[in-house]
Amino acid sequence: MNPKRILSIVSVLILLVATGFGVVVYLKAFTANTKFNQDEVFVYVPTNSTYDDVKKIVAPYVENMEKFNFVAERRGYSASVNPGKFLLTKGMNSFSIVSSLRHNVPVKLAFNNQESLGKLVQRLSSQIEPDSLTLTEVFTDSTFMAENGFDKENILGMFIPNTYEFYWNVSPIKVRDKLAKEYRRFWNEERQAKAKALNLTPQQVTALAAIVHEETAKVSERPRVAGVYLNRLKKDMPLQADPTVIYAVKRESGNFDQVIKRVLFNDLKINSPYNTYVHTGLPPGPISMPDISAIDAVLNAEKHDYIYFCASVEKIGYHDFAATYEAHQVNAKKYAEWVGKLGINR
């Protein structure tokens, strides 16, 4: 056979093989390969996962694992797995799936008004990889707390309610350090100066703000409520804040999930440093995580002569304030009668 003809035939065969291989590659790499109905899903790859682990994680969302594996191996992903949170979209092909598994998606970490450190770490661990036990350990590390002016009673005050951006597989230390940095940024020179003018430390302001936060959900009323408690502190009067008693009951029982709508007379006798009916001054730490408006309400408290307040029966959600015990008794009687009619016993 003519050598030129042989060369032509060989060239055609090579072209056909190449074309066939190209078609195979295209079908495996660039055709849709998902099997979920949602527009998008997130998959989570834990730290130290192997490629076999990843295949198990993505299998519920991938139509053809052979196609996925084909691309993953040829793109080197099978030998270099990345931990984190990853986005898959409906109709993705295998090439795009592997690409997505290399792009860690940030997590918007949010928390507010947690009643205890235990509640907080549960909230955090539900959004990022580190578990609640590990987070508790790094937050309560004795060296860290000492360096930042905290102890186990007031460490909850370090956390400023907000939304923070982390990667899902972030280390516990990075979480702690970023939140501590945010705390220091929040307590700028202006806020520290206002706290000093009240003769309070930032930790004490936070402890008082937590009480104010629990006393009223009305942001506009918080500066007035804060003013009442500051007046009591100046007079060395017990704060007699019902939310501290409720916290003490929950803390003593270890059950922060119970709902207590009414403080009973026997509750006022509970032997707890958080019971402000028994102890004067501020409790040793915050009874909850106050939001920024409550902290600023203390720092910018309304100046007045009120030293008493009671829930209003006319403006639900608000309070009636009094400068004398006699006036307060009138307000308290109206409230007690109203509660009695509602039949609230606890």
Score class of each variant (00 low, 15 high):
L13R: 08
I14Q: 08
T19E: 04
F21T: 12
F21C: 13
V25F: 13
V25G: 07
K28S: 14
A29I: 06
A32P: 15
Q38V: 00
Q38A: 14
Y44M: 04
V58N: 00
Y61L: 10
R75H: 05
A79I: 13
K85M: 09
L88W: 10
M92K: 06
N93W: 05
S99N: 10
S99T: 08
S100A: 15
L109S: 12
N113F: 12
G118Y: 08
K119E: 15
S125C: 09
T140N: 12
D141C: 11
L156V: 03
I173H: 12
R185P: 01
N188E: 13
R191S: 06
P202I: 07
Q203H: 06
L208P: 00
A209N: 00
A210Q: 01
H213V: 02
R224Q: 15
V225G: 02
G227R: 03
Y229L: 07
N231Y: 07
R232Y: 11
L233D: 03
I260W: 00
F265R: 11
K269E: 15
N271C: 03
N275I: 02
V278Q: 05
P286M: 04
S288E: 02
A297E: 03
L299Q: 03
D305S: 15
C310E: 15
D320G: 05
D320S: 10
E326L: 06
N331F: 12
A336N: 13
V339I: 14
